[in-house]
Design a protein around this nucleic acid. Structure first.
Lengths: 253, 253
DNA sequence: CAGTGGTCTAGACCACGCA
DNA sequence: GCGTGGTCTAGACCACTGC
C-alpha cells in the first residue's frame, strides 16, 4: 500500500484490489466478521466505489464474501459440500431425503422440459417444487418433472394441494425402479423467483444441475436443481456430503 | 411519465433489459451474428452504457453472448457438453485422452494441495499441466498433482522437459491401478494465467473440478481442472460427452 | 488508423434492515 | 431515520483487433 509498484504493469485496479483484499481476508479477518462499508473502503484504497465494488463482486463470486443490502459485507464461511449424485438419499422419494417438498401441480411443462423428457408438447407432467436446506440455510431449489404416465396411480388427484401432494408424487416415484442417472452441471443466473427462494438477488450466479432418472428406457423423472454458486461446492462420487467443514457457525457476534 | 407499464414494479432496468435482449436473441438473431456495439445499444434502449453492460454481462454469464475486446459482441453457440467423470478416457494417462499434456515439473505443491494429498508440506510432487480442447476451442486447463512416491520409477528424471516429461508422468500413472474417484464442482474465477490459456480475461467465471484418484488408500493423483463456465456444460454419468450440439460451426461469415 | 469492448470516475438516488 | 449495499448516470480514457 502507499507506493503501489504496479505502475508498469497495467493490471486492472479492481483485480489488484481483489488480491489485496483476498490476502487481508486470509490474515486479518475471521469468518462472520463484517468489513468496513463500501464508501469507506473505496476511500481508503483511493478508488471509486464502482471499482471497489468490482473487486468485492469477484470475492463474492469466489465465495469469500457475503454481501447483504441494508446489513453489510461479511466474511463468508468456507463453501458447503453438498452431495449431488449417486447417493441413494439424494434420489427423489428416498427416505432420509435432504429435500423438503413444497408443492406440486399437474400441467404441461415448458417446451425445453418436454423435449428433454421426450414427451409430447401437451403431455401434462407433475411438477414438484422442492427446497434443499443445509446448516439452516437454503442452498438449492428444485423443479422435479414427472410425466404422469410414469406414475399412473396418481392420475386421480385426491391429495390436497401443497406439500402433501408433492409427497404423494415422490412416494409414487419411490415405488418405481429408478435405474440410471446422468447429470450435467452448468452456470446460470437465478431468476426472480429462484432468487427469492435462495435469499439472493435476481441474477445471482447459480449452479444448475440437471439430472435424469429412468425406468428401463423411459425417462421417469427430470430434475432441474439450482444451487447457490457462492455457498456451495457440489460433490460427486464417494465422499458424499460429509461435512468436512464442520465450522458450526461460531456465531461471531 | 411515459406509459411504460413497469413503474409499479421496481424491477431493475438491467434485469428488464436482460429479458428483452434474451428474447430478441431467441427470435431475431442466429448463432455467430454480431450485435450492434454497446454505445449504440445503450442509446437505443435509452440507458447508460454501464447499465447496458450489466445486462450483457448477465447474458454472457448464461452463455448466450460472447464478447471480445476490439471485435464486438456475438451470439454464442449452445454450450458444449464435456464429459467429466467416470469415463475411462477421462482418466489421466488413458489412451484416447481428451487432454493434451503441456509440461511437468517436480516441486513442492501449494499448501492447499499438499493438504488435500495428505502429503508432507515439503514433499515434492509432479505437477502436470494439461489443456483440454473441444471443437478447436480451449475449454479447460488442468493441474494434475502426482506425489512422487506414487510413481517411483520416475524419480530419475531422464526425460526432456515439456510435453515429453508430462507424458512420462501420465504413462507412469497409467500403469497404476487407479481405483476410486470423487470429484467436486464449484464456481471460481480465472487467475491471470488460466485466463490467458482459456482465452478469457482475468476474473472470468470458471467451473473448478477437483478430482481425486487413489490406489488403495493412497491418493495417487489430484486434479484441479478449470473449465470455461460460459461455454461448458459439465456432464457426469452415462451420456458422457456425446456431442448433441453437433453445430459444426457453420462459420457465419 | 478507426472501432470495439474494458476500466474507471464522481457523483446521485433507491431499497432494504434494523434500532 | 440512518446506514448499508444496489442501481444508474454521463462522461473519460485505455487496450485490443483488424483493416
Amino acid at each position: 500500500m502507499g507506493t503501489t509498484q504496479l505502475e508498469t504493469v497495467p493490471e486492472p485496479k479492481y483485480w489488484h484490489l481483489r488480491t489485496v483484499l483476498s490476502e487481508a481476508l486470509d490474515s486479518e479477518f475471521s469468518v462472520g466478521e463484517v468489513l468496513p462499508n463500501e464508501r469507506d473502503l473505496a476511500a481508503r484504497f483511493g478508488v471509486a466505489r464502482a471499482t471497489l465494488r468490482q473487486a468485492l463482486e469477484q470475492l463474492e463470486l469466489e465465495g469469500r464474501l457475503q454481501r447483504r443490502r441494508g446489513v453489510g459485507t461479511t466474511v463468508a464461511p468456507p463453501r458447503v459440500g453438498v452431495a449431488v449424485g449417486d447417493r441413494p438419499h439424494a434420489w427423489p422419494g428416498a427416505a432420509g431425503d435432504v429435500w423438503e417438498p413444497l408443492d406440486s401441480e399437474l400441467a404441461p411443462p415448458p417446451a425445453t422440459v418436454a423435449e428433454a423428457l421426450g414427451t409430447d408438447r401437451e403431455q401434462p407432467v407433475h411438477t414438484v417444487r422442492r427446497s434443499r436446506v443445509t446448516h439452516g440455510r437454503p442452498v438449492a431449489s428444485e423443479l422435479l418433472y414427472v410425466p404422469s404416465p410414469a406414475v399412473p396411480a396418481l392420475s386421480a388427484i385426491d391429495t390436497p394441494a401443497g406439500a402433501p401432494r408433492a409427497r404423494a408424487v415422490l412416494r409414487a416415484l419411490h415405488h418405481l425402479e429408478l435405474e440410471r442417472q446422468e447429470s450435467a452441471v452448468e452456470l446460470g443466473s437465478a431468476g426472480a423467483d429462484e432468487a427469492r427462494e435462495l435469499d439472493r438477488l435476481p441474477g445471482a450466479p447459480v449452479l444448475v444441475v440437471t439430472t435424469r432418472w429412468s425406468t428401463g428406457k423411459r425417462t421417469a423423472a427430470l430434475s432441474v436443481a439450482t444451487y447457490r454458486a457462492d455457498t456451495c461446492r457440489l460433490t460427486f462420487g464417494d465422499s458424499g456430503d460429509v461435512e468436512i467443514h464442520d465450522t458450526p457457525e461460531p456465531r461471531a457476534s
